[in-house]
C-alpha cells in the first residue's frame, strides 16, 4: 500500500531523512519509534504533503501512485489521513462543519452525492459516543479550548468518520492520561481491518500495550536501523535506544 524508497528530505537546509525505506501492507499496524530528532514526525509530515520539507531524492508510492506529485488534499482524498500531535485551533469553525466538509469532499471526489444531513448526524453520533465524547463537541470551534486529551480524541473521531485507507498517528499518546489513552486506543483498534494500514509514530512503548503492532521500526538519524515485531518494542522499553545505536554503528 505504502512504499517509501530511499527517501532523503531536508528542512531549511539540513538533511533530516537520509535514505529511509519502509513498506506498509494493507491490514498491518506499524510503529515507528526512535529518539527525539530522529525524523519520525518528518516522515508522516512528508507523506501528508506538508510545506517546508524538500524531498531531495527517493520516492513515496501509495497504491502505486507517486505521492510526491499530489497536492495535500489529493493525498487525503486518496485515503491518507494524518492524526496530528498538536491539532491546530480554528476559531469560529464548528467541529461538525469541518467533519462534514471533509466527508463530503471525499464523497464528491468519488463521484458520490453529498451525505444527507440525517445520515451524517447518525454516523457522527455513533462515533462520538464510541469515543466517549459529548454532543457539545460538535458545536464547538475546531480544537478551540480543547484539552490535550480532547484534541486527540477529536483526531480519532475524524478517522472514524472519514475511514482512511492509511491512518497515520503522530505521537497520538502524548499528553494523554491513562483513561484518555484507553479511549483513544480503543478508537484506533476499531479502525484495524484487513484493508487498512496504520502507521503510528511514538516515543513510548506504553501506547503499544494497548495497540499491538505487527511491525516495529527504530528510526535513528534519518534511517530505519532496526525492524522487528512487537517484542522489539519491549526490548526498547527495557534497554533504551543506546544498544540499537551501537549495533547499527558496528
Amino acid at each position: 500500500m505504502l512504499e517509501v524508497k530511499d527517501l532523503h528530505v531536508t528542512v531549511e537546509g539540513s538533511e533530516i531523512l537520509k535514505g529511509l525505506n519502509l513498506t506498509v501492507n494493507p491490514g498491518e499496524v506499524h510503529a515507528l519509534m526512535g529518539p527525539n530528532g530522529a525524523g519520525k514526525s518528518t516522515l508522516s509530515a512528508v507523506i501528508a504533503g506538508k510545506d517546508g520539507y524538500e524531498v531531495t531524492s527517493g520516492e513515496i508510492l501509495f497504491e502505486g501512485k507517486n505521492l510526491l506529485e499530489m497536492e495535500i488534499e489529493e493525498r487525503a482524498l486518496a485515503g491518507i489521513l494524518l492524526g496530528f500531535q498538536y491539532p491546530v485551533e480554528i476559531p469560529g469553525v464548528k467541529n461538525i462543519y469541518l467533519l462534514k466538509a471533509a466527508l463530503n469532499a471525499q464523497r464528491v471526489a468519488r463521484g458520490e452525492e453529498e451525505i444527507p444531513a440525517p445520515e451524517f448526524m447518525k454516523l457522527v453520533r455513533e462515533q462520538l459516543s464510541f469515543m466517549k465524547m459529548d454532543g457539545s463537541f460538535l458545536q464547538r470551534a475546531v480544537n478551540e479550548g480543547f484539552s490535550g486529551g480532547e484534541k486527540k480524541r477529536n483526531e480519532i473521531l475524524q478517522m472514524l468518520v472519514l475511514q482512511p485507507k492509511l491512518a497515520m498517528l503522530d505521537e497520538i499518546d502524548s499528553g494523554l492520561d491513562i483513561d484518555a489513552m484507553k479511549v483513544v486506543a480503543e478508537g484506533i483498534n476499531s479502525l484495524r481491518n484487513a484493508d487498512r494500514a496504520i502507521l503510528m509514530v511514538t516515543h513510548y512503548q506504553r501506547l503499544l500495550e494497548h495497540i499491538v503492532p505487527d511491525r516495529v521500526h527504530v528510526l535513528v538519524d534519518g534511517r530505519i536501523v532496526k525492524s522487528g515485531d512487537k517484542e522489539l518494542a519491549n526490548e526498547l522499553e527495557a534497554r533504551g535506544y543506546e544498544w540499537v545505536l551501537e549495533e547499527s554503528a558496528a
Binding site: 487525503a76 482524498l77 494524518l82 480554528i90
Partner: peptide, 12 residues
C-alpha cells in the same frame, strides 16, 4: 490551519 484542513481533503 490550512494544512490541517487540506490534510482532511478540503481544497485550499
Amino acid at each position: 490551519q490550512l494544512f490541517y484542513c487540506q490534510s482532511r481533503g478540503i481544497s485550499e
